[in-house]
């Protein structure tokens, strides 16, 4: 990636510019559209069989949902801090902050694995009924995006820890940070949709 860095497009600088580069937002908005379709599928499934979904929601551990939310909000804060520290020319604390955000991502994956294993062990596997299918689909798609976003965090970490800025830093750092904030935002939407709403 580093050798590719000289060609950022010249329009994306100054006052009117977007974080990352305009293309970053093609990806981010595409992903959000995809999740919108998934949320609609969940709502349609619930409208189809409200009692089944209420029973399913009751079997979820809200504690996992809230802990995951806290983990991701913390990681977003750490990513934002890493970007600010990088801009302030402080590579060491910026790298530390980015690494801590990466640890949060790992923690999220572990938490999700424990939660899934618990439900599957209780007989609530992905094919148990439509609620569980949609629960695993929505959280699984989100987990996939956590993994993609974690790759972005690795790239971000590699960039911010360098003492001198390299070409293309801004595109990679802001792009990875924007994607990670999207992953966080999607979870904040999943929490009420899947874990909290039972009516």
């Amino acid at each position: 990636m580093a050798a590719t860095a000289t060609r950022r497009d010249p329009e994306a600088r100054g006052a009117g510019r977007v974080p990352g580069e305009p293309g970053t937002w093609v990806l981010v908005l595409g992903e959000m559209t995809l999740f919108l379709a998934l949320f609609v599928a969940f709502l349609v499934g619930r409208a189809d069989d409200p009692e089944l979904f209420a029973a399913g929601t009751d079997r979820l551990e809200v504690g996992f949902g809230l802990a995951d939310t806290a983990i991701l909000l913390t990681s977003s804060l750490l990513v934002a801090a890493a970007v600010r520290l990088h801009r302030a020319g402080r590579p060491v604390p910026a790298a530390r902050s980015a690494a801590a955000a990466g640890l949060c991502a790992l923690l999220f994956v572990v938490s999700k694995a424990v939660e899934w294993a618990g439900h599957a062990g209780d007989g609530d596997g992905p094919t148990a009924d439509p609620f569980w299918t949609l629960y695993y689909t929505v959280t699984g798609m989100h987990l996939l995006h956590v993994l993609v976003g974690s790759l972005g965090l690795v790239l971000l970490h590699r960039r911010v820890r360098r003492p001198t800025g390299g070409p293309g830093d801004r595109v990679v750092i802001e792009g990875a940070a924007s994607y990670w904030h999207m992953v966080d935002l999607l979870w904040v939407l999943i929490l009420p949709l899947v874990y909290l709403a039972s009516a």
């Binding site: 860095a5 950022r8 600088r13 990088h86 800025g165 390299g166 070409p167 801004r170």
Partner: peptide
């Protein structure tokens, strides 16, 4: 830092 990146 951003200025530095704009003139690689």
């Amino acid at each position: 830092r951003v200025d530095a990146i704009d003139h690689p």
